[in-house]
Structure formats: structure tokens, C-alpha cells
Nucleic acid binder design. Structure first.
Lengths: 213, 213
DNA sequence: TCCGTTATTATACAGTTGTACAACAAGCAG
DNA sequence: CTGCTTGTTGTACAACTGTATAATAACGGA
């Protein structure tokens, strides 16, 4: 008698975890937070529902892992764009902007993941910690670039505050653009962000240098 | 025999709807999107679950109505702050900023409602329409003020783009501040926003005037 | 005082949720 | 080829979900 087809294939825990994470990302994109259950994820990954509980504490844990995973991918995409650009701070900043407003960063599916994650931040201290780290890392890269530009051009600025403002603006533009791309265009967002850099270089935001931290 | 205590009190439909909306807001704040069900809202409003279905199509419809309601309240809070300020455009803009970063606008509970609503935008065209209107109204007020300032100071600027950028920055600061108030402070947000206005008045964002819409 | 309207309740139903558990079997070590 | 580890399955369970339904009763108008 011929050897029967294996009814399932065993995976290393980390491999299986990654597959479940990717299935979760697809579920969030396709069905939203409400439609993303243990069973939905298991179906998408073509495994039994019980397996999810075996690798993760629950659906919330899975969403956090998904955020962590795609967060890393986003950071990589931004990092690669910067590596491909000239090494001066202004070019780096502009490369960062360009990468922020095109796939895979500008992506409706990504927003669905972000929204789910944000809704967990309030109740779970562990989630809050992950958010803090991701957000702070992200902002620190911009802070360093802004400080570089100010140093090269020999003007004073509170790079910390400036980076907070710039980050907030990028986030706000990204959010609204993902929510509804018909209100304004990707090109609008690019012009606005680049204009902010123009203004920074021209010595704008002088008020942010009055009380350095 | 004494008249028995009425087992329930009848309300006019719009009164009951408002009570259910307020109960929904409390549920979203307390339990998040996942914990806000028809039954949870009914329990919070101390009515039977069936009543929710009698006044609203479902939980999504209720969340949209809640967004509409609190959205109006936020707009009122901002409007009142501006009415209390001097009538010149700069003062109006600064009053708008101050009101944006204190209760009832800066409020964790408000963010919970916003997050739930945003997660509905993608799938429901009706929700998308409401979002578009609220967001556009909000931004138009700022656009008018920015255009006023530019006109008074006799410099050119694309007020539409500038308002988009300013709105995005305010939204981004508001979002992060509600998510986790320990990363930066309300005062930081205020300084950043006011610095943006300082810069605008000083003739910043000249790049935004190059290709007026 | 009675009557009609309809807001409200209470209940039933089918479907879905998260979680637990015992049985199973794939793949590796010997 | 054998045995062990453990990734994986399938199922059972109680709690919950949205929705529909008929019965109830509050309240205003006659």
C-alpha cells in the first residue's frame, strides 16, 4: 500500500508563529478588528483553531505580535530607502518622506493593523510598552537627522520638539490618506512634508529654540 | 391598593436615542471596541437589549451615531473657545490650539470612540461619507484662518495645503498624547503647535505658495 | 375613563466566540 | 526499525453574539 499523504506538516515553532502572524495581518486587512478571531486566523492559515492557542496566549497577543512584525518591516522599508539615498541629512530626510508615502508604508492594510493595535494600547501595559518603543525609535531617527541639519547650517533648534511635530504631521497625513485617499492626494502629502523640510532648512521654527530641553 | 411603580418609562425616540448614544460612548471608553456589543450598551443604559435594535440598525450604526454626536460636541468646544478669543485670525488660531489640547477634546475616552469609528470607515461607504464631512468641515475652519493671516500679512501661501499639514500635525499630536501621555506632554504639544503658527506668521512655508491650487 | 399607539420588555434562536482537552501523528534521535 | 518528543488535530463546552418575535404596558388624546 502506498504511503498515505501526511495529514499535516510539522513546523518549527517560530516558523509556525510567523505564518500565523501573516494570516492575522491578512484577516485584519480583510475583515477588520471585529472579524479577526482565533478561528478566522486559523482558517486563513489553514490550520486547526486549537493551534493558535498553542502558540499564542490569545487573539490580542497575536495582534501585538503582528504589530511588532509589520512594524519591523515598515522600519526596514524606511531604512532601505534611506540607505539608497545620499548620506547628507537633508537627502536622508527627504528619502524618509518619499518612502513614507508609497507602498508598503502607505497601505490601507497597514492602517487596519495599526488601528487594532492602538485599540489595545489603553488596557494592556505590555502593549503600551511595545508602542512606546516602536514610536520612540521611529521618532529618534528623525530627531537625529533634524539635529544634523541644524548643526550643519549653524542654527539652534530643539530637535526633540521639532521631531515630535514632524512625526505627528507625517502620521496625521499618513492616517488620513489611508483612511480616505480621495480627500487629498499622495502628492499633496509629499509637497506638505517637503515644504516642512524646506522651512526647517531656511531656519524656520525659531521659536522651538527658545527653551531648549 | 397603591399604584404600582412603573416597570419602565417611555421616552421620545430622539431622547432614548441620545441616551443610548451616551451609553455607547461609555462602553467604548470602558471596554473598547471589542467589548461594545448591543447587550453591553443596553446594560449600560439600563434597558433591554431589544430596545437597541428598535432604535438603531445595529451596533455599527450606533457607533456612527456616537461619532456624529461627540464629533458635534468637539466642534462646539472648539467653537466656543474661538468665540471667547479676540476676533483676529491669529488669536482664533491660537485659541483653537489651546482648546485642542485640553479636555474635553484631549480625552482618552474620545480616542476610543475615534478608533472604533476609523475602523468602520473602510468597509462602510456611509461611514466614509460622515468621516469626509466631519474632517473637511474641521479643516476648512483652519484653512480660512490661515488664508486670513496670509492676506493680512500680505504673503502668498497655499492655504489649502497649509491647513492639511497643520491639521495632520494637530491630529498626530492629539493621537499620540491620548494613546500615551508619558511620551511627551501637553505643554510640548502646545509649544510645537504655537511654533508652527509663529513660523506661518513669519512668512514660513514659502514653498507652499509656488503652485497655488 | 377608556382606547389606541408604540415604546419597551422578555424570550427564543442560530451562529460565533475563546478555551480546554485528549487523541493523534510527524519527524528526529538512537 | 523503534521510541519519544511535541506540534497538531478535532471536538466539546459554556458564554456570548446579533436578530426576530410576541406579549406587555406606559402615556397621550378623546
Amino acid at each position: 500500500m502506498a504511503t498515505a499523504e501526511p495529514r499535516f506538516t510539522r513546523n518549527q515553532p517560530d516558523v509556525r508563529r510567523r505564518k500565523l502572524i501573516e494570516a492575522t495581518a491578512q484577516c485584519l486587512a480583510e475583515f477588520g478588528h471585529a472579524g479577526t478571531s482565533v478561528r478566522a486566523v486559523a482558517a486563513k492559515a489553514k490550520v486547526s483553531p486549537g493551534l493558535v492557542a498553542h502558540h499564542f496566549q490569545g487573539i490580542d497577543d497575536l495582534i501585538v505580535a503582528t504589530y511588532d512584525h509589520v512594524g519591523r518591516r515598515v522600519a526596514e522599508a524606511l531604512g532601505e530607502a534611506m540607505e539608497a539615498a545620499p548620506k547628507d541629512a537633508e537627502s536622508q530626510l527627504r528619502a524618509f518622506i518619499e518612502a513614507s508615502f508609497k507602498p508598503p508604508v502607505l497601505d490601507r492594510d497597514l492602517l487596519a493593523i495599526w488601528l487594532s493595535f492602538w485599540s489595545l494600547v489603553r488596557r494592556d501595559p505590555g502593549v503600551r510598552k511595545v508602542h512606546k518603543k516602536v514610536y520612540t525609535d521611529y521618532r529618534c531617527r528623525l530627531e537625529a537627522l533634524i539635529a544634523d541639519i541644524a548643526r550643519a547650517r549653524r542654527f539652534k533648534i530643539d530637535a526633540h520638539l521639532a521631531a515630535l511635530g514632524f512625526t505627528a504631521m507625517l502620521d496625521g497625513l499618513w492616517l488620513e490618506l489611508c483612511l480616505d485617499p480621495t480627500i487629498f492626494s499622495r502628492e499633496d502629502a509629499l509637497r506638505i512634508a517637503h515644504a516642512w523640510v524646506d522651512d526647517l532648512i531656511a531656519g524656520g521654527f525659531r521659536a522651538l529654540a527658545l527653551r531648549p530641553r
